[in-house]
Simulated scan of single mutants.
Amino acid sequence: MEKRFLETEPFYYSRKYASQYGCDLSLPSWAALGSMVVYTRLIEAYALKLGRPLKILTAPHFYTEETIALNERHYPILDENPYIKEIINADLIDIKIMREVSAEMDNFPQLGHITENICAPFGLKPRKLHGDLYLTKEEKQAALETLSHLPRPLVALCPYGNSSPLQESDWYERKWLMIIQKLSDDAGFFQIGHDKFNHKALPIFTPMNTTVREMMALIWACDIYVGFDTGPSHIAAAFERPAMVIWDAVRKAKLEENKEPGFSLATMGRWTYPHTKNLILLGERENEGVSWVVDFILNTDVMKQTRG
């Protein structure tokens, strides 16, 4: 079923401005990290259709003083992508371009997976239903060195995100501590984030002040990933790491409904990945959620191999 929320056709302004400025695609810049990741499959599919790398019209994703101090790249999700030949900064042309392009980011059918939804208006089918990210050899080696003091298998934890539980919830911190305690003899743990993420007081290694690219590399270097529905979870899926994504359904539904009425109905279909496990927080009698996370980690192939 098709549902649009603007009078224009899907990606009307994206097509208009890409054509006007001699580009192949125009991508939104005012988007959350995970939203930027899902657009990478459109880039791949469109480049393969044309048989050449693309010229992209977008704008830098980060402008804050903190990200500038961290030496954050303008296009961390898109850098090193072999399907991109050139990126044109739309803000240097006219700042209204990204306002209109970003406003139509959700203006397409909602009930399919978001990767399919993005590709469909262009007559394209994505090769995989997750992101397509690229790191350099140096970035990968730096991440491995950063984590080299930790025991393997190595579990990356991401206990925060825009839709994660609030401070009064046991899933804000207490249940993460339980997971770590239950598996302390079986795996190593670290906590990931970037910029000024609110690192929680977990008794595990926490690389501080990482850029998006450094965070991406740390996720690539892990063996298993567990986190709330947030940008790093999309990155873990892109690198095809065994991943469990935890959803606070009430919080997520409220955020989706604030975008457009009806968005929450399609949340799980749009944003989850076929090869990840999903834990929906809709109430627990005791600590079933913790048990499910622990069982998921223990039953990954890498953990089974380690345990013999």
Rank of each mutant, 00 (worst) to 15 (best):
E2H: 02
E2N: 09
L6Q: 11
L6P: 00
L6I: 05
T8H: 02
E9G: 00
Y12W: 13
Y13I: 00
R15A: 07
R15D: 01
K16C: 01
A18P: 04
A18N: 04
Q20H: 00
Q20D: 03
Y21R: 00
L27I: 14
S29A: 10
W30V: 00
A32K: 03
G34Y: 04
M36W: 03
Y39T: 08
E44D: 07
Y46C: 01
R52F: 08
R52Q: 07
P53Q: 06
L54K: 09
A59L: 09
A59P: 11
P60S: 11
H61G: 11
F62E: 12
Y63A: 11
Y63V: 07
N71V: 06
N71E: 14
E72K: 09
H74Q: 14
H74I: 00
E80L: 14
K85W: 10
A90D: 13
D91M: 07
L92D: 15
I95T: 14
M98N: 15
E104P: 10
D106M: 12
D106G: 07
L111K: 12
I114C: 01
T115M: 09
E116H: 09
N117F: 00
I118R: 09
C119S: 05
R127H: 13
L129C: 06
G131P: 07
D132A: 02
L135H: 06
T136M: 02
T136R: 02
K140T: 05
L144E: 13
T146D: 09
S148Q: 08
P151W: 04
P151L: 02
P153K: 06
P153Y: 05
A156P: 08
C158M: 08
P159V: 01
G161N: 03
S163T: 13
S163I: 07
E168P: 00
E168R: 10
S169V: 02
D170A: 13
E173N: 02
K175S: 01
M178I: 03
M178K: 14
M178L: 08
I180T: 03
Q181R: 13
D185Q: 13
G188L: 04
F189I: 06
I192W: 04
H194V: 00
D195W: 11
D195Y: 07
F197N: 14
H199Y: 15
K200H: 10
K200Y: 04
F205Q: 10
M208L: 14
N209R: 14
N209Y: 12
T211D: 06
R213D: 06
M216P: 08
L218Q: 15
I219V: 15
W220L: 01
V226N: 10
V226L: 14
F228W: 13
A236E: 09
A237S: 15
A238M: 09
E240T: 13
R241Y: 02
A243L: 08
V245P: 13
V245A: 10
I246C: 10
I246F: 12
D248Q: 02
D248I: 01
A249T: 14
A253C: 07
E256C: 11
N258T: 06
K259H: 11
K259R: 15
K259F: 08
E260K: 07
P261L: 03
S264Q: 04
M268I: 01
G269T: 06
R270N: 01
Y273F: 15
T276H: 12
T276F: 03
N278S: 11
N278F: 04
G283I: 04
E284K: 01
R285N: 10
R285W: 01
V290W: 02
I297T: 02
I297K: 03
L298G: 00
